[in-house]
Design a protein around this nucleic acid. Structure first.
Length: 476
DNA sequence: ATGTTC
């Protein structure tokens, strides 16, 4: 991105001044290096977002921002319904509530190493992965509706997990406001057999160990110590979320015209929050969120079953479950006034600092765990939300590395089997459904997650707590 | 991301 047209407002904070139809400025949180590499499209898309009715403060981009449909991936925007604020499909993304859940195991690295191959193999055969993958759970239409309202709470009630798991999931496992009547039959049909499945693309389940602690006090509050074995599950709402997005892209396209909101990009369509179309999208999107929360809960249950078999001394607890493709109703103080806002985070993790009532008691004094997944074979990070980030960015941080190379280019550059061999030489066990998928997800096709996390940390959006490294991974 | 371009 051309830096000279930006105004530097902090060492890691840059502003696109208001111009043309922009109602507010746009702000990008990044190091100079990441900003230079950043897609020029991010500037254009952020400026478009800044023109939307009812936007509050500024249109924001995280250090891992890159081009997306309508909104950039790594984008954050909050809208006030009382001021004609809108809700947008492009502000959430296709994979509604895609996110990461991290589980603690109570095990040390040395305990797992002798059984690592067996463990990864058992996880691979137990947890369905890959395009169109289906699980053992088959839901009736009534049961699916219960999932879409209940989320992880539904899963726990059905025996897939423990009641205390719910305390460590954003929204306590269930986003209010979901209405299955707003979800098409087409979307529901695609989900009957997809509960508790991993999916494909950049989704994965990784067995990791804590390689480095940066903040010992917060790490203690999170229950993390060096060499601890943890599990991270990265997946979303599968075909259902995708279908909801597809359906409502059409609905909101009509709504944009109906309410006279200029369409600057096909996927930037939106509707006023208080319109029937806007409310229907919110209620459907909440179903997508609950689907993803139920998914990660059922997968956690399968992980527990595998560990009970392979490493029975494990005690699996949920560290936290974060979503990075959502629109949520949150209270924020803006210019001294508390306001109820619809906060869109697309490729951005909620990162609430200390004191927020949404956080479980165990984390309320320190802030929420902010789980940042790397890509296959690279390290990942656990950060903690800050008061500064809650003020500056509605409590938001980056979500991961972000692609540096297209899927197509990656496939031409690498062979899946070579990527797996390369990782094996580093002692990382990989089991995958698709070699083509592995090539697309080659570590070098992604930006350096460490640089993204460093910029997030230095910008004050969230603070580094721990770095984790992979031992084994299963992929679609 | 996605029954990977209905």
């Amino acid at each position: 991105m051309e830096i000279k047209s930006l105004v530097q407002v902090g060492e890691y904070e840059w502003e696109i001044p208001r111009s043309g139809q922009m109602r507010v400025p746009a702000r990008i949180f990044a190091s100079r290096e990441l900003l230079e590499e950043m897609d020029e499209k991010v500037r254009e898309q952020l400026s478009n977002v800044a023109t939307l009715p009812g936007i509050v403060g500024a249109a924001l981009a995280m250090p891992d921002a890159h081009w997306g449909y309508g909104f950039p991936i790594g984008g954050v925007a909050a809208f006030d319904p009382a001021e004609g604020g809108i809700i947008s499909v492009g502000g959430v993304g296709y994979d509604i509530s895609c996110g990461v859940r991290t589980l603690l195991t109570g095990l040390k690295k040395e305990q797992i190493e002798p059984v690592l191959e067996t463990l990864i193999e058992a996880l691979f055969v137990t947890i369905p992965a890959g395009v169109g993958s289906e699980g053992k759970i088959k839901l009736s239409p009534t049961q699916l509706d219960e999932v879409l309202v209940g989320g992880a709470r539904w899963a726990v009630e059905k025996g897939y997990g423990l009641p205390e798991d719910l305390d460590y999931i954003e929204e306590n496992g269930s986003l209010p406001g979901a209405d299955p009547a707003c979800v098409s039959m087409e979307a529901k049909k695609r989900q009957y057999r997809q509960i508790g499945t991993l999916g494909s693309g950049n989704h994965y389940l990784e067995v990791q160990y804590v390689a480095q602690i940066y903040d010992h006090q917060v790490a203690r509050a999170f229950g993390l110590a060096e060499d601890d074995v943890i599990i991270s599950i990265h997946c979303g709402s599968r075909a259902l979320g995708h279908q909801i997005a597809t359906d409502y892209l059409r609905v909101l396209s009509g709504a944009s015209r109906k309410y006279g909101i200029p369409i600057r990009e096909k996927e930037l369509v939106c509707a006023p929050i208080d319109s029937p179309e806007g409310q229907r999208y919110y209620k459907a999107m909440a179903c997508g969120v609950n689907c993803a929360l139920a998914n990660r809960q059922v997968i956690s249950h399968l992980v527990r079953e595998v560990f009970a078999e392979v490493v029975p001394e494990a005690n699996i607890r949920v560290l936290y479950d974060v979503s990075h493709n959502t629109c949520k109703i949150e209270e924020h103080e803006v210019a001294g006034r508390r306001r109820r806002l619809y906060v869109h985070r697309k490729g951005s993790t909620r990162a609430f600092g200390p004191g927020r009532p949404e956080l479980p008691q165990a984390y309320r004094k320190v802030g929420q765990p902010v789980i940042i997944g790397g890509t296959m074979g690279t390290c990942s990070y656990i950060l903690v939300g800050t008061t500064e980030g809650t003020t500056k960015a509605f409590g938001s941080a980056c979500h991961g590395a972000g692609r540096a190379m297209s899927r197509h280019a990656a496939k031409k550059r690498w062979r899946g089997s070579d990527v797996i061999q390369h990782l094996a030489r580093q002692g990382i066990v990989v089991r995958a459904k698709s070699m083509r998928g592995v090539a697309e997800e080659a570590p070098l096709a992604y930006k350096d997650v460490s640089k993204v996390v460093e910029a997030t940390h230095l910008a004050g959006l969230a603070k580094k707590v721990a770095m984790v490294k992979p031992l084994g991974v299963i992929k679609g």
